Computed example of a mutant assay.
Amino acid sequence: MAMSAGSDDGEPMMEMNTTPLIDVMLVLLIMFIITIPIQTHAVKVDLPVNSKNAPQNPVDPQKNKVGIDEAGVVTWNGSQVDEVTLRQYLDQSAAINPEPELHFQPAPNAKYEAVDRTLAVIKRSAVTKLGFIGNEQYRNDF
């Protein structure tokens, strides 16, 4: 900016010269940038490694199947489970949004006691989507 020469009538100049102020601010900015310490600290994070043998999540986000065979063995998606593990899987599936369907398929010759005990575990969990599958084969028997 050019410096104003003022008017000839002897009045004081009303504009302030901001060029030296800007120069001082730029010098201070450069000094602050130079004096900032370099960030040399690091946070060590152990990231997961993809492997072919990694355990898969036993809870499917779409649908899960609880089965009971003739011997009374309870299975979750084909894997044998006990009541405590079944309850944990049920709680995990109930926490998923939207909740996956739970298909319950006891074998035709399964013991009633095992079926009743498994249904009691399912009822005590927070599962709301339960369906009995495999019953359609008996529709003509009655």
Rank of each mutant, 00 (worst) to 15 (best):
M13D: 10
M13R: 13
N109K: 15
G6C: 01
R139D: 03
N135E: 11
Y138N: 14
D9N: 13
R117F: 03
I122A: 02
K63F: 07
V43F: 11
A71I: 06
I38F: 14
N17C: 04
L102E: 02
I38Q: 14
V81E: 04
N50E: 13
F32H: 10
A114R: 02
P55H: 13
S51C: 09
R87M: 07
K111Q: 12
T18C: 10
G72C: 07
P20W: 05
A95P: 03
N57V: 07
P106I: 06
P12R: 05
P55D: 12
V74P: 04
M13H: 12
A94V: 03
V45G: 06
F104E: 01
A5E: 10
E101K: 04
S4H: 09
E15H: 02
N97D: 11
D116P: 00
V45E: 15
V74E: 05
G134W: 14
R124N: 15
G72L: 01
F32C: 09
A54Y: 08
K129T: 01
A120D: 05
G72Q: 09
G72E: 04
V59I: 11
P37V: 08
L28H: 07
R139Y: 12
K129C: 02
N97V: 10
I36M: 09
N140I: 08
W76H: 00
D60L: 12
V24Q: 14
G67A: 15
K52Q: 13
I30F: 09
P12I: 02
N135I: 10
Y89T: 01
L102G: 01
E136T: 04
L26Y: 05
Q92D: 07
R139S: 06
N140C: 00
